[in-house]
Amino acid sequence: MLDDELLSTHLQELRRGTVVLACLLILEQPNYGYALLDLLDRQGFAVDANTLYPLLRRLEKQELLTSDWNTEESRPRKFYRTSGKGLALAETLSRGWDELDTAFRALKGKS
């Protein structure tokens, strides 16, 4: 039986790369950080704010996301959206994910 710490560590490693793809897919529609955290959590991608915000800044710096400030409400919010370059990457990563899923299913079928 796996101990909780070991399991948690490996699940975190497994999910780490998937959060980038999840963000790129979700942000095809503009959204702000806190709402994105909530959406990710509801979809099964538990991410800490201290992880998400640096990730958003990195993806923006890599030109995979664009952002705009919305100051129309009482609290200004920075809205992120997947760029054309980000959409292309999301499509490629999605195909890669499908290929990995197929490979894992084949491995499971051999046991």
Rank of each mutant, 00 (worst) to 15 (best):
E72T: 11
L64F: 07
N50A: 15
S67R: 01
R75V: 15
L55H: 00
W69L: 09
P76A: 09
S67T: 05
S83H: 08
Y80D: 09
E73T: 15
L52V: 01
P76G: 03
K85M: 12
E72A: 11
F79P: 06
P54W: 00
E73F: 06
W69Q: 04
L65D: 12
L56W: 00
Q62M: 09
T82C: 08
L52D: 00
R57K: 10
S83R: 03
E60N: 06
Y53A: 00
L55C: 02
K78I: 05
K78E: 05
K85G: 03
A49H: 11
P54D: 01
L55G: 01
R75D: 14
N70H: 14
W69F: 08
W69I: 10
G84V: 05
T51P: 10
R75Y: 11
K61M: 06
R58Y: 05
Q62G: 04
R58Q: 11
S83L: 13
E72W: 14
K61Q: 15
R81W: 08
A49T: 14
Y80I: 06
S74P: 05
E63V: 03
S67G: 06
A49P: 09
G84T: 10
L55A: 00
S67K: 12
E63M: 05
T51L: 03
L56V: 04
T71K: 09
T71Y: 15
N50W: 06
E60Q: 15
K78H: 07
E72N: 13
E73D: 08
L64N: 05
T71A: 07
K85Y: 04
K85S: 02
F79W: 11
S83A: 03
W69C: 13
L87G: 10
R58K: 04
N50V: 03
L65T: 07
A49E: 14
S83V: 03
F79M: 14
L59F: 12
G86H: 08
T51Y: 09
E72L: 06
L87A: 09
R81D: 11
G84E: 02
R57M: 11
G86M: 06
E60W: 04
L52N: 00
L59V: 04
N50F: 06
L64V: 15
F79K: 01
R77Y: 10
L64K: 12
T82H: 04
P54Y: 00
T82N: 05
R58D: 14
E73K: 11
K78D: 03
K78F: 07
R57H: 03
Y53T: 01
R81Q: 10
T51N: 08
Y53G: 01
K85N: 03
G84P: 02
D68A: 05
L55R: 01
R75C: 12
S83G: 00
R77F: 15
Q62W: 12
S83P: 12
L65G: 02
P54N: 02
R77K: 10
T82V: 08
K85L: 03
P76M: 10
E73Q: 13
L64Q: 12
N50C: 04
F79G: 08
Y80C: 13
W69H: 04
L65S: 07
P54S: 01
W69D: 06
E73S: 10
